Amino acid sequence: MSIQHFRVALIPFFAAFCLPVFAHPETLVKVKDAEDQLGARVGYIELDLNSGKILESFRPEERFPMMSTFKVLLCGAVLSRVDAGQEQLGRRIHYSQNDLVEYSPVTEKHLTDGMTVRELCSAAITMSDNTAANLLLTTIGGPKELTAFLHNMGDHVTRLDRWEPELNEAIPNDERDTTMPAAMATTLRKLLTGELLTLASRQQLIDWMEADKVAGPLLRSALPAGWFIADKSGAGERGSRGIIAALGPDGKPSRIVVIYTTGSQATMDERNRQIAEIGASLIKHW
Rank of each mutant, 00 (worst) to 15 (best):
A211D: 15
L47N: 03
R238Q: 10
A170F: 05
D177Y: 01
K32P: 01
Q274T: 07
L74W: 01
S104F: 03
G142E: 05
P172R: 06
T262Q: 04
A170T: 03
L218E: 02
K30V: 05
I125C: 08
A200C: 15
N168K: 02
S233M: 01
A40I: 04
L55S: 13
V42A: 07
N152H: 11
L219Q: 06
S51F: 15
D155W: 00
Y44V: 06
V214R: 14
M180W: 13
K284C: 12
S96I: 13
G154R: 07
N272M: 03
L247W: 06
V78D: 02
K144T: 11
W227A: 03
K232T: 00
I140Y: 05
M209D: 00
E166M: 15
P253L: 04
G216A: 12
L74N: 02
R91W: 12
E26A: 13
P25A: 13
H285A: 10
T187M: 13
I278F: 12
K284R: 13
R220W: 03
D48H: 07
H24C: 09
I259P: 00
L79I: 11
V82K: 06
R59F: 03
D177C: 11
S57F: 14
D48W: 03
I244R: 00
A185W: 00
S128H: 01
D161E: 05
I45K: 01
T198G: 08
V214E: 14
P165T: 09
E46A: 08
A34K: 05
S281V: 10
F64L: 02
I125Q: 02
T262M: 07
T158I: 03
N272K: 03
F149N: 14
N130G: 09
K32E: 14
I259K: 00
M67P: 00
R63V: 07
M180G: 14
R271F: 14
T112E: 15
R273C: 08
E145N: 12
A148Q: 05
V214F: 15
S240H: 04
R273A: 08
P249K: 13
V101A: 10
R238W: 06
R241W: 02
F70K: 01
M153K: 05
D161C: 13
T126H: 10
V78C: 11
D269N: 15
R91E: 14
H110E: 09
A34C: 08
D33I: 06
P224D: 07
A148D: 09
R91N: 11
R91A: 12
M184F: 08
E35V: 14
K71E: 00
L120F: 05
L282D: 01
D113G: 04
A133G: 10
L135I: 09
G251I: 15
M127T: 12
T112K: 14
T112G: 15
A266G: 06
G52C: 03
N272E: 10
S233E: 01
L150G: 11
R159Y: 07
V157G: 13
T179Y: 00
H151Y: 05
G242C: 03
P224N: 15
V31M: 06
D161I: 09
I259H: 00
D33F: 05
T138I: 15
S264G: 11
V72K: 02
G141H: 10
G263T: 10
D48S: 05
E62Q: 04
L167W: 00
G154T: 04
T147I: 07
E102A: 11
P181Y: 01
G234N: 01
A77F: 05
T138Q: 14
I275S: 01
I140E: 07
N130S: 12
I171Y: 15
N134F: 03
K190Q: 15
H94S: 07
A182L: 14
G142A: 05
L55P: 02
E210T: 07
D99H: 12
A276C: 05
P105Y: 11
T193S: 11
A211G: 15
G43D: 00
Q204N: 15
P105K: 09
L192D: 01
G239N: 07
I54F: 11
P224T: 09
T262D: 06
F70E: 02
D36H: 09
L150C: 14
P249Q: 11
T187Q: 08
A230N: 00
A280R: 13
N173V: 07
T138P: 14
E277M: 10
A280S: 12
L74R: 00
V82A: 12
I206H: 04
Q86G: 08
P60G: 07
D161A: 06
G142H: 07
W208N: 09
L120M: 09
A200V: 14
L247R: 00
I45Y: 14
P65M: 02
V257S: 09
W163Y: 12
L160I: 14
T27K: 15
K190E: 13
A185Q: 00
D36L: 13
E102Y: 11
S80T: 09
V157A: 05
T131K: 02
T69E: 02
R176N: 12
L28R: 08
F228L: 13
D177R: 01
P105G: 09
D36G: 15
D113I: 05
A40N: 03
D83N: 11
T112V: 15
E56R: 06
E169V: 04
K284F: 08
L160V: 07
R255Q: 12
R202D: 03
S233K: 00
V101K: 13
T139I: 10
G39L: 13
E102N: 08
A84K: 15
G236H: 03
G226I: 03
A280H: 09
K30M: 13
G85H: 07
P249H: 09
L219S: 04
L79C: 13
L282C: 12
E87F: 10
K53R: 15
E270C: 03
L120P: 01
I283G: 13
A225N: 14
W286E: 03
D155S: 02
E164G: 01
I283S: 15
P224H: 12
Y103V: 06
D231N: 08
H285S: 08
T178W: 01
L79D: 01
R118P: 14
G154F: 09
P165V: 10
L49E: 04
R59P: 01
P249N: 07
V42I: 04
V78S: 06
S240V: 02
P25F: 15
M209E: 00
S240E: 11
S201P: 11
E62F: 03
N173S: 09
D36R: 15
Y95L: 07
L282Y: 04
L120N: 02
V257Y: 13
G43L: 00
D83Q: 13
E270R: 03
L205Q: 02
A182G: 12
L146P: 00
V157E: 08
R59T: 02
I140P: 01
L192F: 15
L28A: 08
V78L: 09
L160H: 12
W208H: 12
G251T: 10
